[in-house]
């Protein structure tokens, strides 16, 4: 599987992402700098990693979404290339218009950094086909702006079309993780080849990480694309 990780000034999960992709697919991804206008040819998979691109100036993900490489990512997504955005990557994909809605400051105002329980809502997507529908999994989150917002019509459409991939399952005393509308943790685009999520699957690849529930997401992409390592 030929993959790429996009690197912005302030990305800090790009190497974690590269290690995760390499571990699962057996092939190291290309690391693509934000100023490059062109992506490597014949990519199967693009990951937009977490971090604090451009210092979160203006809005989280706003500057990165307008960088030269993102025009190529948007074009690649339109051609059907699988695109994964994690945390800041999710924020960048919404700012770039690849996914609807916006990620706002956490409702509790605190930076949330812990493992969260999630429910797999759609287990048929390119990214979630190695999970069971309704399965509870655990992945770490670490964000300040993960409060997913979209208007009711958009939320209804996402739910109706099975585009809510993951939902926060925690029912703990602190309430929701970040105040997200309808507890949404991850959503798909209408074609199903773009996933944005706040939790970090790349930080849960092997038991030594404290959990390995993220591994199946990358395995699912490989299986879904039907490409070998």
């Amino acid at each position: 599987m030929k993959s790429a990780v996009i690197v912005f000034p302030g990305s800090n999960c790009d190497r974690d992402m590269a290690v995760a992709i390499g571990a699962v697919t057996g092939q190291a991804p290309a690391m693509v700098w934000h100023g490059d206008a062109d992506l490597p040819e014949r990519l199967d998979f693009i990951a937009v990693p977490g971090g604090f691109s451009y210092g979160d100036y203006l809005r989280s993900g706003a500057m990165a979404a307008r960088s030269p490489v993102m025009r190529s990512v948007v074009d690649a997504a339109a051609r059907g290339v699988a695109v994964l955005g994690v945390c800041n990557g999710f924020q960048i994909l919404t700012e770039a218009g690849l996914l609807p809605g916006a990620l706002m400051r956490n409702a509790g105002l605190n930076f949330v950094c812990r493992d969260v329980a999630l429910t797999v809502e759609n287990a048929r997507s390119l990214f979630t086909n190695r999970y069971d529908a309704g399965e509870r999994i655990s992945l770490p989150v670490a964000h300040h702006d993960g409060n997913y917002f979209a208007d009711d019509a958009t939320l209804d459409r996402l739910e109706g079309e099975g585009r809510v991939a993951l939902r926060y399952a925690d029912g703990d005393a602190n309430g929701a993780v970040n105040g997200s509308s309808r507890d949404i943790a991850g959503i798909l685009n209408d074609a199903g080849n773009v996933l944005g999520l706040m939790p970090h699957p790349e930080r849960a690849i092997e038991p030594a990480h404290g959990g390995s529930d993220g591994r199946r997401l990358f395995e699912g992409v490989m299986a879904g694309l039907s490409v070998g390592a």
């Binding site: 203006l58 706003a62 307008r66 919404t94 700012e95 609807p100 809605g101 916006a102 917002f149 979209a150």
Partner: peptide, 9 residues
């Protein structure tokens, strides 16, 4: 529209 404001919110 293109940068200074996110018109979703």
């Amino acid at each position: 529209r293109k940068l200074l404001a996110n018109t979703v919110i």
